[in-house]
Design a protein around this nucleic acid. Structure first.
Length: 627
DNA sequence: TCTCTCACTTC
DNA sequence: TGAAGTGAGAG
């Protein structure tokens, strides 16, 4: 090994301090010796310095003084930094005050009254009503990423029976979770606030092998969309950023592969422009078919002649005739309309079309407004009890009296309320509370250049309401892995799995994460390994094996991986004071009231939920990742 | 209950 | 003009 102080040896990239900054400790320590190539050792072991290079710093006495001073200054600077809040995301996050308004609320409200059904197909379907939101209160200059995900609303499978949705059993294992990042992300607060944020490109599918980045759902299961606002200028920073999450209870829906409720079908047709062809306006196929059916029926009743001639005897609608002939469906139509004649609603519709048709959409819009106003009056009550009632009963579904004929059509998961365990563990929306706790610690991740998330501190112990739980399996949400599909859809994997045993004792929802690279059909385990989908379940199983106790009903091989976003700590009671979860959920009004509290410390910050009691509607919570 | 094709729509 | 988004309906 070289002697660092060999005179004249210039082979070590000489560093000769000259400017003041060169004499700081950092500058010196950054240079491994020898950094004074001109220094020579005297016979006494002291330094011999050429006169030309003498500098106050090079004087042994002065140097010691200077170094001591520099060290002291650096120490003071460090202490000062500890005392003052670091300029991190946590500090910056308090600078804005985002509020979100659901622009399409009136539509959602209208659908929700009958139990919103959302068609899912193998090739992916858009959501209707669309999820459109308007943001306010953002920092104009700061960059934000807006996201949306859809989580299971409860642990049940549903069936449509006797014109209403009923619980039919335990939920199927949850599909791989994906987070949809709005394609405009990241954008400045000014940009987001200048427009309505539309998530119309988000598609739903039941194809577990989907490679497009669509959101994968289980048919006949209830889901709740969630909207997230994240202040971050880079998607890679998402794991370390604060998530503000907004939940609008009226956007809850049941995924179906085929519509169950005729009213929902009709409302979709009436409101979705792409379904215009099925409207009773006289131009679409539905009109033609109905015309055809009626004419056929009339014709056969009156003449009993061949059905092929029926269209020719119709009301003279050339289009109708054309449609009939080209479709060559006379026989089918006759059969169809004779059958549906048993359906009073369809009879009514068919009868109406013979009259001058009012604008259906306008008619419903008026109805929307009326019902919406009615609901707003009832649900926006200033009475906290009203809020609580709404929360317990699933929002507006119980706003009508039992005598109200509409009540029979409402979206009522009948057995949920009586499920004691559900009430205890806070399953589903029926136990919505004004204050909600999430695990106080975020599992931390490093995103390596390959986009694989590695969790940091995965053995960290966190204290949750007096109980210590390992964060290995305790994660609020998985927002950790981003992937961009071939069509530009950004997704991140998030799969929540309740850790039942821990949850029961701590009263907090715990989740297990699964990270899906949608574009590649891969799922990344919480520990960074990449698996094909089947492995994602295996990984989840393994991770849960010591904690999960939820029985498997339908597919024993894959245990339920239900994420319970709405669990509350203490049964159905509403605490007067919420003791301070780092991550908290608040129920808000639809009046864009921001009720959240952001704490610097995810563990200890107090949270006063009392103000939120009067504001029920969208559910809103904040989660924070500390770096 | 699900999948596929069809005719129709919007953009 | 064609891609993409609709519900109907058959299987």
């Amino acid at each position: 090994m070289r002697d660092p102080l060999v005179p004249g040896d210039m082979a070590f990239q000489p560093f000769l301090p000259n400017t003041a900054s060169d004499f700081t400790l950092d500058a010196m320590l950054a240079r491994q010796p020898p950094f004074f190539p001109a220094i020579a050792l005297t016979s006494h072991g002291s330094l011999h310095l050429p006169v030309a290079q003498r500098h106050p710093m090079l004087d042994p006495v002065n140097a010691e003084t200077i170094l001591r001073k520099a060290s002291l200054e650096q120490h003071n600077a460090t202490q000062s930094a500890k005392l003052s809040p670091p300029k991190t995301l946590e500090t910056e996050a308090t600078e804005d005050d985002p509020k979100v308004h659901l622009e399409t609320r009136h539509l959602w409200t209208q659908f929700h009254k009958f139990g919103t059904e959302m068609v899912i197909t193998k090739s992916g379907r858009r959501m209707f009503p669309p999820f459109k939101a308007r943001c306010t209160g953002l920092n104009q200059r700061a960059k934000y990423i807006l996201l949306m995900d859809i989580v299971a609303a409860d642990d049940f499978r549903y069936k449509f029976h006797n014109s209403r949705w009923m619980v039919s059993g335990k939920a199927d294992p949850e599909m791989p979770k994906r987070m949809y990042i709005h394609p405009d992300s990241p954008a400045s607060g000014e940009q987001w606030m200048s427009k309505v944020v539309n998530f119309h490109k988000l598609k739903l599918t039941n194809n577990i092998s989907d490679k497009h980045g669509f959101t994968i759902l289980n048919s006949m299961h209830k889901y709740q969309p969630r909207f997230h606002v994240v202040r971050a200028n880079d998607i890679l920073k998402l794991p370390y950023s604060t998530f503000r999450t907004y939940v609008f209870s009226e956007t809850e829906f049941i995924a179906v592969t085929a519509y169950q409720n005729d009213k929902i079908t009709q409302m979709k047709i009436d409101n979705n422009p792409f379904a215009k062809g099925f409207r009773d306006t006289g131009n679409g196929r539905r009109e033609k078919k109905k015309q055809l059916g009626i004419n056929i029926q009339k014709f056969s009743e009156t003449s009993g002649d061949s059905l092929d001639e029926a269209p020719l005897k119709s009301a003279g609608n050339a289009k109708s005739i054309e449609g009939c002939q080209s479709d060559n469906e006379s026989g089918q139509e006759s059969k169809h309309w004779n059958n549906v004649g048993q359906d009073s609603r369809k009879i009514s519709t068919t009868t109406e079309e013979l009259k001058p048709e009012p604008n259906v959409t306008t008619f419903h819009d008026k109805a929307d407004r009326a019902s919406t106003d009615s609901l707003r009056t009832e649900t926006d009550s200033e009475d906290p009890k009203q809020d609580h009632i709404n929360a317990i009963t699933g929002g507006m579904t119980r706003c009508f009296g039992a005598e109200d004929p509409r009540a029979t059509e409402h979206f009522q998961p009948l057995t949920v309320e009586t499920d004691q365990s559900a009430r205890i563990t806070g399953l589903g929306r029926n136990t919505f509370s004004h204050c909600y706790s999430y695990p106080p610690d975020w599992t931390r991740y490093i995103l390596n250049p390959l986009g694989v998330a590695h969790r940091l501190l995965h053995n960290a112990q966190v204290n949750m309401q007096g109980e210590t739980v390992s964060s290995v399996a305790a994660t609020a949400m998985g927002h950790m892995l981003m992937a961009v599909s071939s069509d530009g859809v950004c997704t991140m994997g998030t799969a929540g799995i309740p850790v039942s045993s821990v949850q029961r004792t701590s009263g907090l929802p715990l989740n297990f994460q699964q990270h899906a690279m949608a574009s590649q059909g891969l799922t990344v385990s919480p520990f960074g390994a990449i698996f094909p989908y089947p492995y994602s379940y295996l990984a989840a199983t393994a991770a849960l094996s010591t904690t999960a106790s939820t029985p498997v009903h339908r597919r024993p091989v894959r245990p339920p991986t239900r994420f319970r976003p709405y669990s509350i700590p203490n049964s159905v009671g509403l605490p007067d004071n919420c003791s301070t979860p780092p991550t908290s959920i608040h129920l808000m009004t639809d009046r864009d009231v921001n009720c959240h509290t952001i704490a610097n410390s995810p563990i200890a910050a107090p949270l006063d939920c009392s103000h939120a009691m009067n504001h029920y509607k969208p559910l809103y919570f904040t989660t924070k990742a500390r770096v």
